[in-house]
Structures are given as C-alpha cells and as structure tokens.
C-alpha cells in the first residue's frame, strides 16, 4: 500500500490540511503561528541583542556613572560620540559630561564603547524604534535622552546588569578609604579681587608659561584668635598631592611634583580624573608604572598625547624603559 500511486501527494495534502485546521485551535501558541503581531505584541529581546548605546545612572540622573573620560569617544570606530566635560565656575573638571552626544545615524552598533568603558557607564540598549523624519537633529541623541536608570538596564539585560553591579561594588569600596584630599581652592584663600586677578592671570598665561599653583602671593588673612592681620605664606604642603586637580596645566603639575619621587612625578603627569580608564585611579596607575607591575604608559586616555609623552619621558629618565 505504501507504494500506491499518488499516495505521497495525498499525504502532503493531509499534512497541509491538518496544519491549516489546527492553526485555528492552537494558533496562539508561539511554536505554531510564530508571528508576533508587532505593534500590539512585542517579543522579549534576548540579552545579547543591542542597538544603540545609552548612559546608565544610579538613582537619580545626576548620579551618572560617566566620568567624561572620553575613552569611548577615542575608541568609537565611526567617531559618533562627542563629549565635553562639565567644569565648575573655576574651570575645575567635575568628572561628568556637560555635553554627551551620540549620532545614531553614524553609530554602527558595534558595542565597543560599552566594552571599553572603565566605569560601566555606557551600555548597549535594545530599543530599535528609532526611526525619525529628519536625518540630522532627530537622530542626534543628547545627554538627557541618553541617560537611563540602572533599573532600566536591569529590565532589559538583567543578567548582564547584575554582573556589572557585582563588579562595581568592590571598586567603590576600594576607592572609599582614600578620599581625595580637598585642595584649598582660590575661593578659600583669596579675596574677591585677588581671585579674579588670579583667574585673569591664569587665562592670559595659558600656553605661555608654567602656572604656579598655589600662586606665590602673600595674602593677608585674619588669623583666628587674634585681631591682627598677619602675613601668611601659602606655600604648598610638603607632602600630599597638590597636583591632583585636573584644572591645572600639565606643566604646572610637573612643577609642583618637581622634587618628588618618581611615582609622584608620574602621578602628576596623569589627567587627575581618577576615571579608571587605565584600570586604576591616578595614584594606583602611577604606583604601578613606578614599580614596574605595569609597563604600558599609554593607558591614560583623558590625558591624551601630553600625558603619554610626559610619562614616556619620565620613565626613560628613570631608566624604566
């Protein structure tokens, strides 16, 4: 019977008829009619799916993880990221971006920015509904749109986000015991006139010569307990890291660390952001270079060429290279 003429054709008809009829009974099962009725029905995207980058924040949007270290900007193959660091009124960097733009019409969704980010701030989103009517403004994402909460990150990629959270905590703990010593800012020690004079001086001197910080001015200051004004010299502290302020020019920083150990000099050459792009904070990277545990002097991305060249010079002078 199995070789009966046309049996195969009839069998085929039976199969398709069964498929047709049963689809009306178990059609809601996704292994039967696997079409997703897209706008109403959405597929849970797999964790590995990725579209465009977004920035993670913890808690509130101003607690963003991004330190504006520009590693992603440097690494981005199509160069679609543009970052400007936030600075306070005195030009001191605030370790967060003022401008963070991603041009998603240029972005090729490679995920390299998320891979290189030292602070786990930039991650790949799963949002694919990004069509727009304009090629330019509408496809350029600015900081407010880019910022998304850690909860959202957990929502779209729970396993990855949990892994990230687990690696982030110890870093924070390690950083906590060594808080950056607050440097006296010009606001603390200068009078209003002097401060503006100093700022003008700084601005005029940029690129012309070393800026000495703190400025070698003798300031008149009220000393507590006495009513007499006393001459106080604002000399740098003999220990500590007075150069640990990215607002200071690299030449000035090197000047401040002139008489220090190799590790201190190396540290002064860093960008002073503690952004961890290199895998350490600035102190740690300097120690690692000085002790020879890490010989790669190109890791300080925010410092760019000048830091790299300075580190190379210092290491050569010390005979480490």
């Amino acid at each position: 019977m199995s070789n009966l003429l046309g049996k195969g054709m009839i069998d085929g008809l039976v199969v398709t008829a069964k498929n047709f009829v049963t689809s009306y009974f178990d059609g809601n099962r996704k292994d039967r009619l696997f079409t997703y009725q897209y706008p109403e029905e959405r597929m849970k995207l797999p964790e590995n799916s990725r579209t465009f980058p977004f920035l993670v924040y913890d808690g509130t949007p101003d607690q963003m993880r991004c330190t504006a270290c520009k590693v992603c900007e440097t690494e981005c193959p199509p160069q679609c990221i543009y970052i400007v660091m936030e600075r306070d009124a005195n030009g001191k960097p605030l370790l967060r971006p003022r401008v963070f733009d991603i041009d998603i019409s240029v972005c090729m969704q490679c995920g390299i920015c998320a891979e290189v980010c030292p602070t786990n701030a930039i991650k790949m989103d799963c949002d694919f509904e990004r069509s727009a009517h304009g090629r330019f403004e509408t496809l350029l994402s600015h900081l407010p749109e880019l910022l998304k909460s850690n909860d959202y990150y957990h929502q779209i990629k729970s396993a990855e986000a949990t892994r990230v959270d687990a690696t982030r905590k110890p870093v924070k703990k390690a950083a906590a015991p060594a808080p950056v010593k607050p440097m006296p800012t010009p606001a603390d020690i200068l009078t209003e006139d002097e401060r503006s004079a100093w700022q003008r001086g700084c601005q005029s001197e940029i690129g012309t010569g070393p800026i000495v910080w703190p400025p070698p001015v003798v300031v008149k200051k009220k000393v507590a307990g006495t009513n007499t004004e006393q001459n106080v010299s604002a000399a740098p502290l003999p220990t500590g890291t007075p150069w640990h302020d990215s607002g200071i020019d690299i030449a000035a920083r090197m000047e401040l660390a002139k008489d220090r150990s190799l590790a201190d000099k190396l540290m002064a050459a860093m960008a002073q952001l503690d952004c961890q792009a290199c895998g350490y904070d600035c102190r740690g990277y300097a120690d690692a270079l000085a002790s020879g545990t890490n010989s790669d002097f190109t890791l300080c991305t925010p410092g760019e060429e000048e830091t790299k060249n300075m580190l190379e010079k210092l290491l050569k002078e010390a005979g480490k290279l």
Binding site: T16, N19, F20, Y24, R32, L33, Q37
Partner: peptide
C-alpha cells in the same frame, strides 16, 4: 490567508 495558515503564519490581517 489559507497559504499563511498552511505555512504557520497568520496572513494579511
């Protein structure tokens, strides 16, 4: 519609 159902799809809707 019929071809869709035969091929595990929904067809135009």
């Amino acid at each position: 519609k019929a071809l869709g159902r035969i091929q595990n799809r929904r067809g135009p809707n």
